[in-house]
Each structure stands twice: as structure tokens, then as C-alpha cells.
Write a protein that binds this DNA or RNA. Structure first.
Length: 264
DNA sequence: CGGCATGTTTCGCC
DNA sequence: AGGCGAAACATGCC
């Protein structure tokens, strides 16, 4: 999915729907429980939050909708896509790719209010999921506020590659493939390093790279806006920091890109 | 046509 | 029991 940064961009965009009452709901039952529709209809949106990569829409009557975007899911709010073009996904927006539609009262728009959903999730690849009252208890600490203590605890006695563990939402919540590479790039850590081989100061470097770097990427537009952009990754350019050719390998089933010069 | 893609879940195998 | 790694899922694009 879209990583935690994209979920945060969408969460902020959802501020305009808070306080509205849902007048009609529809879901693609292949990716959402059908009872969600009955729960949503007539409910008021109390808050829109985020946990890791999951967007949470809190309703009155103590129910929460959890939107998980998979690899190609995206959100459209009042007919406007906060993230126009999603990397590695289709640029099209076909109605038959819609997985969730929430219509609300009190639209600011007048003549389109009948047809444009306040919240619409569109996902060509259908790897995303929409849940009712999602269980978020298995998520690890939030990446954007990650402390070295939290990370050290999460990595204790783990021998898998650090890159693989950073992608595990139960270890750290919110990091996807691009952000994990970006964080390790700035922390100066080789993604293949077994987690239990990291010294304390290296764990600290990873945690502070999360806290320092992720907000910068967020303000720039999300996980594609770091130093290791999709273009740099695809062309395997030279390291933007020290000019040597970047390395690429599959780690934990995902493409990792790193600099062998400054990531050790 | 082959291969690849911001992700999660499942299934064997230690 | 639980960690680990590969495969599966589903579809569009280059």
C-alpha cells in the first residue's frame, strides 16, 4: 500500500468529512464484510485517524471502519484525490475498481452531491481490505515517533535481515518498502544485516532516521519523495550522497536498494 | 510475452 | 512455539 505516509496524507484530507452523517454506503464484498454497510448507514463520522498503514474512520455507536490499501489502493475525498498518481499503479480511475463508497450529508458541493461519494476507495489490484472494528493490537510502535528503546525491544533476539523486520508491521508500524530503504539509507545500515548484529548506536541511528526523515518525506508528498525515488531505484543511479553505484537485491521477497559505500 | 510493482497472508520447515 | 523464507494472492503496465 501506500505506506504509512500516504495513509497520513489521506487522513489529513479526511478532516472535511468529520462530523458528517453517512447517508449511504456500498462495499465490494470481496474485500469487505457485507455487514459494514448496515453499520455505516446513518452513522456519524466522529474522527478519522491512522494506525500504521491503516486509516481508521470512527463512527458514533462505537464502530470503526479500517481501510487497508494494499499495494494499489487509493482514496478519493469529495471527488478529489489527495494523491493524484500512485507509483506502481494504474493512472486510471475506473468505477469497477471501487471497493468502498460512503455518501454523506452536508456536502459543500451542490449539484454533484448526489453522485460523488464523500469517501471512495479505489483499488485495481484488490489487495486492499476494508474491515469493521479492525484489531490493531498486533501493530508495533509507530515509525514516525519510533524511539531507540522501542526499536531495540522489537528487534531483540531477532536474526532476520533488518530490512525484513522493518517491513513487519508487528515490529514497526507504517513502514513500506520505499520508506524502509530510505530509513536504512539515512541510518547508514546495510539492509542485509541480521537485526541481532546491530550495535546499540546503530539501532539508535535507525530510530532517529525514522523520526527525522519520515516527516520530511511526508511534507514533500510521501514515500516516493525521499532520496531513493522510484526513478533512482529503477535506473539504479549513483548514490546521491557519495556518488558510487547503488546496489540492488531481493531481501525478504522485496527489492532492496542501498549504497555499499556508506551503508555497512 | 516476461517480468516487475509503496503489501499482507499462508504454508511448510526448522 | 515461534521465527523464518518462499509462495500465493490479483491486476496493470512497460
Amino acid at each position: 500500500m501506500p505506506e504509512g505516509l500516504e495513509a497520513e496524507i489521506w487522513r489529513r484530507a479526511c478532516g472535511v468529512v468529520v462530523g458528517r452523517t453517512i447517508t449511504d454506503a456500498w462495499v465490494d464484498e470481496r474485500v469487505a464484510p457485507s455487514e459494514l454497510v448496515g453499520v455505516a448507514r446513518g452513522a456519524r463520522i466522529v474522527e478519522v485517524g491512522r494506525s500504521g498503514k491503516v486509516l481508521t474512520i470512527s463512527l458514533d455507536r462505537d464502530h470503526v471502519l479500517g481501510l487497508h490499501f494494499g499495494m494499489t489502493g487509493r482514496l478519493v475525498v469529495d471527488g478529489v484525490a489527495p494523491i493524484e498518481r500512485l507509483e506502481y499503479a494504474s493512472g486510471a480511475d475506473r468505477a469497477d475498481w471501487d471497493r468502498l463508497r460512503l455518501h454523506t450529508d452536508s456536502h459543500t458541493q451542490s449539484d454533484t452531491a448526489d453522485t460523488v461519494p464523500a469517501i471512495r476507495m479505489n483499488d485495481p489490484r484488490r489487495l486492499g481490505r476494508i474491515s469493521l472494528d479492525p484489531d490493531l493490537s498486533a501493530l508495533g510502535p509507530e515509525a514516525v515517533t519510533l524511539t531507540s528503546g522501542e526499536l531495540g525491544t522489537a528487534l531483540a533476539r531477532r536474526s532476520a535481515a533488518i530490512k525484513t523486520l522493518l517491513l513487519d508491521q508487528g515490529v514497526v508500524a507504517g513502514l513500506g518498502n520505499l520508506c524502509a530503504d530510505e530509513v536504512l539509507f539515512h541510518a547508514g545500515i546495510d539492509p542485509r544485516r541480521p537485526a541481532d548484529s546491530l550495535a546499540e548506536r546503530e539501532v539508535e541511528a535507525i530510530a532517529s532516521a525514522c523520526r527525522d526523515r519520515l516527516p520530511v518525506m511526508l511534507e514533500r508528498g510521501g514515500s516516493t519523495c525521499g532520496d531513493l525515488t522510484p526513478d533512482v531505484r529503477a535506473r539504479l543511479d549513483r548514490c546521491p550522497l557519495d556518488g558510487v553505484p547503488l546496489c540492488r537485491a531481493t531481501i525478504g521477497g522485496r527489492t532492496a536498494v542501498w549504497c555499499s559505500q556508506h551503508q555497512r
